[in-house]
């Protein structure tokens, strides 16, 4: 029982960063943009939040957790939105190939994260020495009272505020996409930009806003990882391939943020299940880590063998739109 509870907690812990990324990417893809720069953007978001908190705590003898957290969130949103903006300018205004821009952005973002991570590690006195304890405590604070309820408390109420934000954002995103006027317009832009344009929708504006806000949401996944998961420190490449898993999760969730919520927990569980299977050697543990990717591949193949209109990616995904093209 104890083991199962820990497993679920850890699975959620792993999944939340991926959920942020997937929600952001779903909003982006609904506008027809396939942003493969999300992994880089999550690095940018993570390090920016950390830098903000680091300098706040460094220059303030008695830092307040709430202020630190606010600064970190703000820095993350700005940096990751900047990443989304670079992608948007290149793909929407300059109509560059989305895959190429995305990959370049991932190279850039990962380098950005590691470079500044390395640099402030040096400022802090060595690798693993960065510590923003005060700010991180705000991110790691559990819900008082409720988290003490046996079992339910540990499984549902023992996380920091970003975890709940991730779920709330995913729910709001689903409501927005499926039940609002603007969400309907967004879907139309992703399905058929020419149609949306003819209907008087400003296609570029929707693409910009969706991509930039999608990037900002994804960047929060980086912040979650740095603050709540690692407790306010940085290791180069520590975030690993979670950004790519976020893109994989979009497919698993069939472009529905609500499905991404449980999907993220499944992914998180698969990511760490090797720890909980008894009798594994070091070598077989490594093989177990391959599970999330194999599952994604299976989902990919299975959905591609079925042919249902509503379960397909947005029809214009990956292409740029130019009104006077003829």
């Amino acid at each position: 029982m104890e083991l199962i509870i820990t497993f679920i907690q850890k699975a959620i812990g792993q999944g939340i960063a991926i959920l942020f990324g997937a929600t952001g990417e779903i909003i982006t893809e609904k506008s027809g943009n396939l942003n493969l720069g999300i992994p880089g953007i999550m690095y940018m978001g993570g390090i920016a939040g950390l830098i903000g908190a680091f300098f706040y705590e460094r220059n303030n003898p008695a830092p307040s957790p709430a202020v630190g957290a606010a600064i970190a969130v703000l820095c993350t949103l700005l940096a990751s939105a900047l990443g989304g903006l670079i992608y948007s300018v290149l793909t929407i205004t300059l109509r560059a190939n989305q895959n190429v821009v995305g990959l370049a952005l991932t190279t850039f973002g990962t380098g950005f994260g590691n470079f500044f991570g390395g640099s402030i590690s040096k400022l802090a006195g060595g690798v693993g020495q960065i510590s923003v304890m005060t700010t991180a405590s705000a991110f790691q604070a559990k819900i008082p009272g409720l988290s003490n309820i046996p079992v339910i408390g540990s499984v549902i109420f023992s996380y920091g505020f970003l975890t709940y934000s991730a779920v709330i954002i995913a729910v709001l995103a689903a409501l927005f996409i499926n039940h609002t006027h603007k969400g309907l317009n967004l879907r139309a832009v992703g399905e058929s930009p020419a149609t949306a344009d003819a209907a008087g929708i400003n296609v570029s504006a929707y693409k910009y806003v969706a991509t930039v806000s999608g990037a900002a949401i994804a960047g929060m996944g980086g912040l979650y990882f740095v603050m709540e998961y690692l407790g306010g420190t940085w290791t180069n490449n520590g975030f690993g391939d979670r950004g790519w898993l976020a893109i994989a999760l979009v497919i698993l969730a069939l472009w529905n943020p609500l499905s991404a919520i449980w999907g993220s927990i499944v992914f998180g569980g698969l990511y760490i299940i090797y720890i909980y299977i008894p009798g594994l050697t070091r070598a077989t543990q490594e093989l177990c880590k391959v599970l999330p990717y194999i599952v994604t591949i299976i989902v990919l193949v299975v959905t591609s063998t079925r042919n249902k209109e509503e379960k397909q990616p947005p029809a214009s995904l990956g292409t740029s739109y130019f009104r006077e093209e003829r």
């Binding site: 670079i86 290149l90 821009v101 370049a104 952005l105 190279t107 850039f108 973002g109 990962t110 380098g111 950005f112 590691n114 470079f115 390395g118 180069n236």
Partner: peptide, 12 residues
């Protein structure tokens, strides 16, 4: 990692 940033900027 500075080289990744520089590569990224040139690529953009």
């Amino acid at each position: 990692n500075a080289s990744d940033i520089i590569t990224g900027i040139i690529l953009f």
